[in-house]
Simulated assay, not measured.
Amino acid sequence: MRLAIDHQTRYRFSEPQQRLVQTLRLTPGDTHDQTVVDWRIDVDCDVRLRDSIDGFGNRVTMLYAEGPIDRIELTVAGQVLTTEADGLVRGSNELLPPPMFRRTTARTTPDAMLAEWARDTAGSGEVLAQLHRWNGALCQRFPEAADRPDRGATAVEALEGGDPDCRDLAHIFIAGVSALGLPARYVSGYRNCGEGTCPPHGWAEAWVEGLGWVGFDPSAGISPDANYVRMATALDFNGAAPIVGIRQGEGVEELSVELQVERMNGDA
């Protein structure tokens, strides 16, 4: 499948900023089932961009802008070829061994109730089947999870609040997998939702011995298919967020995001 992506992020500041420094995880990497055909990041003002690879193997662009700046617009556009892999992640840039992802963060640490629910739901038997049962249970319990700006909730807080978004569900999934004693991680990326306009998305991956990393999207109850584009992985959303940064200046900022993910005609 050939997916065309157009992602625009606009910042407006009530007072001119002296300096901006941002970390952009907005460039997908190639795998056996994901090939970047064309990709570019454009900025509507004078900036310095520096590309690198972070500790998780993600492609990162550092953005530096000197003020005064009262607005800045980032445009990410490109095309990605994807193939169906039943959720398997093959040929990704892995710098860390799977056991590293047994570590939990403040956002992925289960409490006793979450851990018990995950173990009871997963049951026994083949590991992959356990993970699919856990993934399906989350989707069944929260079938209307939205894609919305991150609120910073932990897995436990999101579960207790009863209104998790896609990122929250990924964190809850990871926390449950941790209770099962398996490595798991967060994934940020894009999803073709069939409507043209699609919010940025997040899901999870778990390590299955003998298979490798396998993706799970509890907001949809499936493993990611050819409609998904992986961007970055980390222990939680904080480490895989598309854009994070700091600014020097007074006032408040206003953020708007527009994203279109479309399947192109005559694709592979």
Rank of each mutant, 00 (worst) to 15 (best):
G91R: 05
A4Y: 13
D111K: 02
L74T: 06
A241M: 10
T104M: 11
L49D: 04
G123P: 08
Q79S: 12
V37R: 13
T197M: 11
P98L: 03
G125K: 07
E15A: 14
G57Y: 07
G194V: 04
G176E: 05
A170W: 00
G239F: 07
R263F: 09
L169S: 01
A112D: 12
A179D: 07
V208W: 05
Q17N: 07
G245Q: 07
A129R: 13
G152W: 10
Q79N: 01
E254R: 11
P28Y: 01
R185F: 02
T197V: 15
G176T: 06
A137D: 06
L88K: 01
V156L: 06
R12Q: 12
I222P: 00
E126D: 14
Q260Y: 10
R263A: 15
F13M: 01
I69V: 15
E126T: 11
R48I: 10
R107M: 12
R40D: 11
E254L: 13
G123Y: 05
P199I: 05
V37N: 02
W117T: 14
Y228P: 03
G152E: 09
G245E: 09
A153N: 12
I172E: 00
I222E: 13
P218M: 03
N135W: 03
D30G: 02
E250Y: 10
D225I: 09
S219V: 00
E195C: 12
F173M: 05
